[in-house]
């Protein structure tokens, strides 16, 4: 009974927060609303017995996505003196129509949402009630996979392709964001933020703690919830803190070492995937006795790559300009 009450409350709150996150009058409020939405989502994942996803959602879905969106909202607002002037002068007249498009768009959106929603609801309602899915197969092969946590086994062994390509997607996104940086030195974006001693002391305590916890998550990920993604996302959180506290600079991406870190995950994963083919196996088919060390090596490299890439994605959105000192020959 009480569990049902929690389910219904959580879902109602999720839908309401989602609506607020899209349509709150001020864009800052909308963006910040995404944070409690993500955290509530993490609770729901825990309730649905998906602790791996809960950790990833709290770190990536709630934390990093919101940080990215806040940085973007700030950047768009900061550059638009025009919009700010209009905001204060005619806030009431603007706000009425600024959020939603014209009647046509609203109608099309509503019709589309109803059609897709109806089809999806019908599909969900027709799912067979009791089905184990693929879990018997996973459990049968778990002892050969080199990982005790079934989710890790699926991610890095049974469906290694997905994870390999996922790291490639991360790398592509980073390349895309970096291409969008501008050549001009531009103004110092964060001049208005002054140094905060309190934040400084928090960073001094919390960054080492995050490093320890992410190492723990990486190590435990073999047999318990956790793994490379959660550890990397957590480390990226530390990276975001360091950038905000000005102890790390996004311009460091130009450094060779950082680029090596960025590529390490994909190179390690791809290297292992190809190397097992020497002995006549298929792509990504690890020898059973070597599975555990290979998975651990891939995960360690992937953690570093994911952490650096996610941090740099945030840095690329936060500071849109290339550092003047590193510009060199760029015209």
């Amino acid at each position: 009974m009480t569990v049902w009450a929690f389910d219904i409350l959580a879902l109602l709150a999720l839908v309401w927060l989602a609506w607020r996150a899209m349509t709150a009058r001020r864009i800052e409020v909308a963006v910040v609303t995404f944070l409690p939405y993500g955290l509530l989502m993490a609770l729901v994942w825990a309730r649905l017995r998906a602790p791996d996803i809960a950790i990833a959602e709290a770190a990536i879905g709630a934390g990093l996505t919101t940080a990215l969106l806040i940085a973007a909202a700030n950047r768009i607002r900061r550059r638009s003196a025009y919009e700010r002037a209009a905001d204060t002068a005619a806030a009431s007249s603007r706000s009425a129509d600024a959020r939603l498009g014209g009647w046509g768009k609203q109608l099309v959106g509503a019709v589309l949402a109803c059609v897709v929603g109806g089809l999806l609801a019908a599909a969900v309602a027709n799912l067979p009630a009791q089905q184990a899915g693929l879990s018997p197969q996973v459990e049968a092969n778990l002892s050969d996979s080199g990982a005790g946590n079934p989710v890790t086994a699926v991610l890095l062994n049974f469906r290694g392709y997905d994870t390999l390509l996922e790291i490639a997607v991360l790398l592509l996104a980073l390349i895309g964001v970096m291409q969008l940086r501008r050549e001009t030195p531009g103004p110092v974006v964060s001049a208005e933020q002054r140094h905060s001693l309190v934040l400084d002391s928090l960073v001094h305590v919390i960054v080492p703690l995050i490093v320890i916890v992410s190492g723990y998550l990486l190590w435990r990920g073999g047999d318990a919830p956790g793994g490379a993604f959660q550890a990397g996302a957590l480390l990226a959180g530390a990276g975001v803190l360091l950038i905000l506290n000005k102890q790390a600079r996004p311009a460091w991406l130009s450094a060779r070492v950082v680029r090596a870190f960025v590529a390490a995950g994909l190179l390690m994963f791809g290297g292992v995937a190809l190397n097992v083919m020497w002995t006549g196996r298929n792509l990504l088919e690890y020898p059973i006795e070597l599975a555990k060390p290979l998975i651990l090596a891939i995960e360690a490299a992937a953690t570093v790559s994911i952490a650096v890439i996610l941090t740099m994605l945030f840095g690329g959105v936060l500071t849109p300009h290339r550092a003047p000192s590193l510009q060199g020959g760029a015209s």
Partner: peptide
């Protein structure tokens, strides 16, 4: 303990920004 530290810091940052 971590939530305590993070909450106190966030509160300080928000108040500082509001004051400025």
């Amino acid at each position: 303990a971590v939530a305590l530290a993070a909450g106190a810091t966030a509160c300080n940052l928000i108040a500082q920004y509001a004051d400025r």
